[in-house]
Amino acid sequence: MPKQIVYKHKLATRWFHWLNFPLLAIMIWSGLLIYWANDIYEIRIFGITIFKFFPEVIYQWFNAAFRLADGMAWHFAFMWLFTINGGLYVLYTWVSGEWRDLLPNRRSFGEAWQVVLHDLRLRKTKPDQGKYNAAQRVAYSAIIVMGFGSIVTGLAIYKPVQLAWLMWLCGGYETARLLHFALTVGYVLFFGIHIGQVALAGWNNFRAMVAGFEVVDKPAPPPGNSPAERAAKTAAS
């Protein structure tokens, strides 16, 4: 089968993506150091604690105990880089027109479900897709909305008096903190699924996120138009 090189991800997209990864990781890690100082959240069903954020072993793993000052210093320095990188990504995606591949359209939400069923091996066929499938469109757009949410709720907790209107918009000080935390849990879940999907999609797909291109089968030329067929036609006449 003839192969060809197809360019998939622009250099800018790859830079934004791979800068965001360590920046978000630092924000989550420093956020954990901050959260440790008042770790009140848990999942409770009928009064029974199902999961406490976080079990001691997690704090030990990240050496998070008694490091509130450290956490705040890193968090409030790297928030700028995280915000700037995210902002430039959105600006780039908008100006370059790449949003057309990324934003969910009318069909995406229904189709995303079909993609999930397919990926769970519950459905044989997959809906047609462009650069990104419907589930990817939904996920990669949602993650941007989440990032925006983290910045807004973060600002609300950071300046609850001077930006009191923002705090109010976020449902109050405590609610803003809870939302900020919940969004972070969302990133961790996203990360888990993302890594799993990348592993399943294989090398060609992963390489595209680093090198920008994929090696794919060349589409077959329209029937009756290949050089051999034309030669055969000429010979017959």
């Binding site: 901050i34 959260y35 008042n38 000080y173 903190r177």
Partner: peptide, 10 residues
């Protein structure tokens, strides 16, 4: 007022 501690509680 809602007294806010740097630890995160209020």
């Amino acid at each position: 007022h809602n007294f806010k501690c740097i630890e995160g509680w209020s």
